[in-house]
Design a protein around this nucleic acid. Structure first.
Length: 635
DNA sequence: AGATAGACTTGGAATAATTTTA
DNA sequence: TAAAATTATTCCAAGTCTATCT
């Protein structure tokens, strides 16, 4: 940790448009692409994305919207669904007809003995507004379920999504499917569609909602809260605890991140027939919507979710209703997470010795294990699992390709790739010469689109890590790194005891920022940022002028005035500096997920800073389990 | 041995609420 | 006191990783 590499990187955020990649936007994966074993064998010798299509890993579920002729928004019939998946794809035979998670895994740990809850809240049914779509110059009044889809799109006119070809194409395919067979099937040309009337209606509607009196707003909100109250809670082993996402996701257009090939697809409305209820035996089963039935009722006490349904976009994914962040079940796993990271702190020296040894003398496989472990340790990179090609092309350490790095002799490596959520990782790091040369060897003779670490994957790295420390996986290094860094920085940089709470808070935020940069947690620069900075700049100039003026007529009485102005000036300058430095850094993610709250709370106690200074109300509740920590807690 | 279903954590954007500023 | 700026919360997408299947 002593290396000075942390201050090199100037991480820059950019949503990189991957030019020329829209070509493969067709969503029906040709059957011929599903060559059995296509991804086996030497699969990692070539990068996934740039591997010829027939060799790519690809989804083998009979996919989504495109193969489903039902009008969107219609009720999904489960018997039909089952048969589609089970019979539809010639080679997905077996009993596991549909992916249905009702069976407990064999040795799985029991998570509860009794579980009661009230199911989910459904979004309100669609209410037609009757505003027409203009097609080829003529008003077309759509049927409600058609209008619903048109409105999804119309209201997004101002977003970046609506400017993307893939998004528009996917939406329009879905829209046409909705219209197919109905009275408006003649709508086939996107260029002839004018959604402006619906768009304008929506603007008005927003205005109207805004102009409702505060009193009225409060009333409506309170009523809704009262109606939802019972869904917010579940009882597990007799404890009443908060539920997290008890609301069913409403239908809409899928908003994938980065260059997601499915962005703009219509997300269908989820009905009770889609939802599996997981609940204690003998507990009262919640009522589905009137006239509807749940897909299934199960009693699996080896998992902690309450309700679940298949995602309609990525059809093999599941959505779950889980307990909330303040629940004991989440607190317990949070504690385990940080305790594991603390164990890593004790084991890390041996791990470092091990990877340097393997880099020098091991087989290529061992060398790759060693180098990836080094990168995970020093740079806190993510694992990087193999991805289907119907997802955005993002990578982690195991999926890094030759084109993602540059060698800057003597021993600096420049990384430039898209990580989770298509956030760009652009950093230069000086690495150990052994690492530098090993990576040069791995890249030698390979093309830009080939994997650097062609002998390994996250499973293998994790297996290896577990030989060094029980339970150790790649992601633990991120937790460890983040918490370790916060712990260290707070010790070094917290101002002396007599300084003010805001000064201490500034030191905390600065440490938090270092952690965020380490983890590459970014946010989009606010659209108004530049204008805001200019405004502050103007303010600064005004103060400077005032000071200059006061100086010119040298009255004694001016001295005090100048002093206060100077104070204001330096405060403003600091504010400007922070604002600019943090414009693209997101502090929240590390606070919520990576930095052991006991470090923060101990620091608060030690420095007489009330926890709400650094934690929001929600975080104080989430980290309730850490509140009793000793003031001298050391990570 | 490799693929992947399943379940859980992590992540930025969007939206809502609150505070500050003009 | 309204608009602007800031901060908090909600939303749901996108990762990780294990157990199970083939």
């Amino acid at each position: 940790m002593s290396d000075g590499e942390d201050d090199l990187p100037l991480s820059t955020r950019a949503r990189v448009a991957i030019a020329g990649n829209e070509s493969d936007s067709d969503d029906d994966v040709p059957l011929s692409a599903r060559v059995p074993g296509a991804t086996t064998g030497k699969r990692k010798n070539m990068s996934n994305r740039n591997r010829p299509a027939h060799k790519r890993k690809s989804s083998d579920t009979e996919d989504d919207n495109s193969s489903d002729d039902k009008p969107i928004g219609s009720l999904v019939d489960i018997s039909d669904r089952k048969s589609t998946t089970a019979g539809g794809s010639a080679k997905k035979k077996t009993k596991r007809a549909d992916h249905e998670p009702w069976r407990a895994k064999r040795g799985a740990k029991q998570m509860w003995s009794t579980l009661e809850h009230n199911g989910v809240v459904f979004p309100p049914p669609y209410q037609a507004h009757g505003i027409p779509l203009v097609y080829d110059g003529h008003d077309v009044k759509l049927l409600p379920h058609e209008e619903e889809v048109a409105t999804f799109f119309a209201v997004m006119k101002d977003t970046d999504y609506a400017q993307k070809d893939i998004f528009v194409k996917n939406f329009f395919d879905g829209f046409k499917k909705t219209l197919r067979g109905g009275p408006h099937g003649f709508i086939k040309d996107f260029k002839k569609c004018d959604f402006t009337k619906i768009y304008m209606w929506n603007l008005q509607e927003r205005e109207r909602k805004k102009s409702v009196s505060a009193e009225e707003k409060r009333k409506v909100k309170a009523e809704q809260a009262a109606a939802e109250e019972k869904y917010c809670w579940a009882t597990i082993d007799g404890r009443r605890e908060r539920v997290g996402n008890y609301k069913v996701e409403p239908p809409g257009l899928f908003r994938g991140r980065g260059e997601h090939p499915k962005m703009g697809r219509v997300k269908k409305r989820i009905m009770p027939e889609d939802i599996i209820i997981n609940i204690g035996k003998g507990a009262k089963v919640p009522e589905p919507l009137p006239g509807h039935k749940w897909k299934q009722i199960i009693h699996n006490n080896t998992v902690t979710w309450l309700c679940g349904w298949n995602d309609t976009i990525n059809t093999k994914d599941w959505k779950y209703v889980q307990f909330g962040a303040t629940s004991s079940i989440k607190a317990e796993s949070d504690i385990q997470k940080y305790e594991k990271a603390r164990k890593l702190k004790l084991a890390v020296d041996a791990i470092r010795r091990d990877y340097f040894k393997k880099m020098k003398s091991g087989s290529v496989l061992e060398q790759q294990l060693a180098v990836t472990t080094y990168l995970v340790d020093k740079l806190a990179l993510r694992a990087g699992g193999e991805k289907d090609d119907d997802l955005a092309d993002t990578v982690g350490v195991c999926t890094l390709r030759v084109g993602h790095i540059d060698f800057l002799p003597p021993s600096t490596i420049k990384f430039d790739f898209l990580g989770k959520d298509s956030i760009r990782y652009l950093q230069e790091h000086e690495v150990d010469p052994l690492v530098f040369h090993a990576m040069q060897r791995f890249c030698k003779g390979k093309k830009k689109d080939q994997d650097i670490f062609d002998h390994i994957d996250p499973t293998k790295v994790n297996k290896h890590l577990q030989t060094l420390m029980p339970g150790l996986t790649i992601k633990v290094f991120r937790t460890y790194n983040a918490s370790y860094t916060l712990n260290k920085l707070l010790k070094e940089t917290t101002p002396a005891g007599d300084s003010t709470v805001p000064m201490k808070k500034a030191a905390y935020d600065a440490a938090n920022k270092e952690v965020a940069v380490l983890c590459n947690h970014q946010k989009g620069v606010s659209k108004a940022h530049d204008a805001q900075m200019e405004k502050l700049q103007d303010k600064k100039k005004i103060i400077e002028k005032e000071i200059a003026a006061l100086r010119r007529d040298k009255k004694d009485t001016n001295k005090a005035k100048i002093r206060t102005l100077k104070e204001r000036l330096s405060k403003l300058e600091l504010q400007m500096k922070m604002k600019d430095e943090l414009k693209s850094v997101s502090l929240g993610t590390s606070k919520i997920n990576y930095m052991d709250p006991r470090i923060t709370i101990a620091w608060c106690k030690h420095n007489d800073v009330p926890p709400p200074t650094v934690y929001t109300k929600a975080l104080v509740e989430k980290f309730n389990w850490a509140m009793e920590v000793e003031p001298d807690f050391d990570f």
